[in-house]
Design a protein around this nucleic acid. Structure first.
Lengths: 170, 170
DNA sequence: GGGATATGTTAGTTTTGGGTAACAAAGAAA
DNA sequence: TTTCTTTGTTACCCAAAACTAACATATCCC
């Protein structure tokens, strides 16, 4: 077997977080510094230095001593894919389930590392399905959910409403 | 500071997994043995012994040397809450998004440890909303999603649909 | 240019949770 | 009972990823 220094093995969620942070900083501030990564992820600076050396070793970032941090194309790709998952999750949680934005963001930060490609696809399709609804706003059935969640009662259903065994929820 | 031996601190996902496994085994086989936990979680036996001693220390299980493992009421509670999240996620992924059951199970195993209480609530409500739909089966809008996902086309919308019902092009 | 101050790195420790090797106890077989 | 096999435990070791303390550079200001 050839000795491959730049491991192909899957990244830990921690390392994914570092890449994501670097991407965010580059976008928001133009450059990524150890200090800012440290603040953003709420870890101490030596932890950042350590992580950077790992990511360097995998060919995901470029970092020279005391200098800025930059993503390689490979690193960009990973960061981008994580961010896409993150954004999708936030969108799903806030726009469809109406979860509090703060909580949605936190959940997304954790779930973005664990979601499978297939679930990502499906969820993305679902959001798209909702958001491109011809009625413009939230589709009616989704408003039905809002109401169901708040009151435990479902809205009148157009399809035959015989008898109705009204027990809300369980 | 008072010396609290049985820490109240949040459990790691690993420890949650052990509790869950123990609960599963107790239910399926009557008792939980080190060997079976080891198989179920795909770790070696010494890792199990180690984990058990941690969980014991937290008052979540009872385990005497060379004996069976049992959950304390506290342990049951934790295991139950994890399982509830697991089942809910599987249900959501398979029944609503139509994710492959195998993949759904794997996703659930990872996500069950990261989902917030609020998101759990919302998601549970959403599933309930769908499953108690008066039309019995999948609600129409959900069938609309199935179709949208497969063909890229949304079903005819009752609300004004100017002409066009042509190609199944995506 | 020469210090303060801010920023980055190194070295060494800790915590978690996995692994091996070797041993100890329990159970089945004889 | 004695022996073999299975199961569980102990005593290490390893790796990831965080931390602190101390040191090294850079930067800014005078």
């Amino acid at each position: 077997m050839s000795v491959k220094a730049a491991e192909k093995r899957k990244l830990s969620s921690n390392m994914e977080d570092y890449l994501e942070a670097i991407a965010v900083l580059k976008k928001d501030e133009g450059v990524a510094r150890v200090r800012d990564i440290s603040r953003l992820l709420d870890v101490k600076k030596p932890s950042v230095t350590g992580a950077l050396s790992v990511l360097s070793g995998k060919g995901l970032i470029v970092h020279e001593r005391y200098g800025y941090v930059d993503l390689t194309p490979k690193g960009e790709k990973v960061a981008g894919s994580v961010k896409k998952k993150h954004d999708m999750l936030v969108r799903f949680l806030t726009r469809i389930l109406d979860v509090d934005p703060r909580i949605a963001a936190e959940d997304a930060c954790r779930m973005e590392h664990t979601i499978s490609p297939q679930t990502f696809e499906k969820l993305t399709g679902f959001i798209e399905f909702v958001e491109t609804c011809p009625t413009g706003d939230r589709p009616d059935w989704l408003k039905g959910f809002d109401r169901y969640f708040k009151t435990g009662r479902r809205p009148k259903c157009k399809i035959r409403q015989a008898g109705r065994k009204t027990k809300p929820g369980k």
